[in-house]
């Protein structure tokens, strides 16, 4: 499954980061690399973007971009 499908208060481990160019590089640079554990904290009031917690900090990305990130091992927080 992909990161945009992860509901709040659940965490998972990244398996692959898809996409191309600036967006993909940005995601990798911000620490969304394979093997990283990510938690979805919340969804913005209008349903998008989402708030993530990873590597000890809080990041927000759009669902559309999150759909490029493959995850596995979903757990409740």
């Amino acid at each position: 499954m992909t990161l945009d499908q992860l509901t709040p208060k659940k965490s998972a481990t990244i398996t692959a980061v898809g996409g191309v160019g600036a967006l993909r590089r940005r995601l990798l640079d911000m620490g969304l690399t394979p093997g990283t554990k990510v938690t979805v904290r919340k969804v913005a009031p209008m349903g998008d973007p989402i708030e993530l917690f990873l590597r000890g900090y809080v990041l927000t990305i759009r669902k559309e971009d999150a759909s490029n990130i493959e995850i596995h091992g979903v757990m409740d927080v």
Partner: peptide, 12 residues
């Protein structure tokens, strides 16, 4: 062309 991706930190 592509806008700069909206990948933004929410600082404390």
């Amino acid at each position: 062309g592509n806008p700069v991706p909206f990948v933004m930190e929410l600082p404390a």
